[in-house]
Amino acid sequence: MKLMKSKTPELLFSSLMIILVSITFSVTADESDKVINIYSERKEELIKPLLDRFSETTGIKVNMITAKGDALIKRLEIEGKNSPADILLTTDVARLYRAKSLELLQPIESDVIKAIVPANFRDTESTWFGLSLRARVIVYARDRVDPEDLSSYEALADPEWKGRVCVRSSSNAYNQSLVSSMIVHNGLEVTEDWAKGLVDNFARRPKGGDRDQIKAVAVGECDVALVNTYYLGGMLHSDIKAEKAAAEKVGLFWPNQSGRGAHFNVSGIGVTRSAVHVDAATRLIKFLLNDESQAWYAEANYEYPVKSGIPASATLQAWGDYKADPIKLDQLGQHNAEAVRLMDRAGWK
């Protein structure tokens, strides 16, 4: 018993210390500028090749964690000034806006970057920049819908689409940003009425991802759906025959072309306030904005480059030209919570 009294806590403590020390040494932030630490909402698969190329060309080692955007923001917030992260990569603008509001990002003043990224796709105070564009469009069943009948997001709430619309849950960031943009353009009340009308027109309870909406259109469960273009691109190049076949059954329609243009969100980047490798971070932003990287976004994930003048890939070319909503994207972030509440009230699950 006496033996126990003295030795167990000691043993426990010392073994804990050993574990801690060994782990600590392996992770302590490297102060040299030959390394950069990234918190990424973008899945590894969809960014790693670019980062590898960055390491190859610059000799800067890239460390990365991927997770959900808000979880990463929370981690940044909790870690505070000690956070090892230099960069936050997100897949939509609301996360960037939120990180900025929580004062987790620092401005990067660079005329080169400003020249490349159009003003509406970056923060006024230069704390974040869009890297690639993600368009939310209407897909329709080629065999049942005449694209002439389609016009705008707003028109999807018209009675003629009753029981014909598929869209995923309102928890999805792109639905939230689309509704945010409509609040900015049309006002809260009009948008809420629209959301109610849209919910009335749902062919089914929202479920699944964007690919599932495309498949639902293909099999006839619904006639039109709201999706991001790159999902359609992914399906068109899928290894699974059924997916490819489904994608080929639907057409892509650019909404609101006679008005403000289609809704675009961005995948973006910001340098954290705690960053110690600011130079390397700036180099990474520039690298991700160079022609080669920008083309890669389109090639690998069918996203649209944020930089103009990049020759479009074959898939993107086939979808034709478009007019994009020129809205300042930080407005989307501002109205995000409002949009979610609006959709809650409208019964958009």
């Binding site: 959900k68 808000d70 928890s171 960031a173 929202p206 479920k207 995000n336 919570a337 979610v340 699950k349």
Partner: peptide
């Protein structure tokens, strides 16, 4: 697409911020 308690937690966090 089932609005259960967990989805609610994350919706409140991520969506409503």
């Amino acid at each position: 697409g089932i609005s259960a308690f967990t989805t609610g937690i994350f919706r409140t966090w991520f969506g409503l911020g």
